[in-house]
């Protein structure tokens, strides 16, 4: 495999890692998961740094990655401590609890409750059963799995 193709592969992997991290960072509300997503973005960047370092025959990339790992370790300690404190204060890991920095005249973001009461009355379309009708699972009928 030539050097350019190797670099491209590495870069693609790094970009994927970074992208997954970014999407996770935007979409998740659990602080620990957000933190993990951030770490993932960091690793994506580290992979591309290593790739570039190898490509250029320059140890700077590798060195920087080691450095990033060190910093990330420290940062993890601090971040987890902060998360722990926030959890103690808020009683939840949900990031949406912490919106105090918004402007005074901005409405707070509130979760829209998923309507629950109507479920029983709702008629769900049913496929015509085929074969032997299975025993209805009572547990499954009365209890809706948590989202």
């Amino acid at each position: 495999m030539d050097e350019v193709a190797l670099l491209q592969n590495y870069l693609v992997v790094g970009a994927f890692l970074f992208g997954i991290g970014l999407v996770g960072f935007f979409s998740r509300r659990n602080m620990i998961v957000i933190f993990l997503s951030a770490e993932m973005m960091l690793q994506g960047v580290s992979v591309s740094l290593v790739a570039w370092g190898r490509f250029h025959n320059n140890w700077g990339g590798q060195m920087l990655v080691i450095f990033i790992l060190t910093v990330a370790a420290c940062e993890a300690a601090i971040a987890l401590a902060v998360v722990l404190t926030l959890f103690h204060k808020g009683g939840s890991l949900d990031i949406a609890l912490w919106q105090q920095l918004r402007e005074d005249n901005q409405p707070a973001y509130v979760d829209h409750e998923v309507p629950e009461g109507d479920d029983a009355e709702k008629r769900w379309p049913r496929l015509t059963p085929s074969g032997i009708e299975p025993e209805p699972d009572l547990e499954d009928l009365t209890h809706r799995a948590h989202v």
Partner: peptide
Amino acid sequence: LRSLQSGMVQFYALAMV
């Protein structure tokens, strides 16, 4: 510009990106 300051962390991150 005030309406941009929603206090949501993800929104800030999105704005940064």
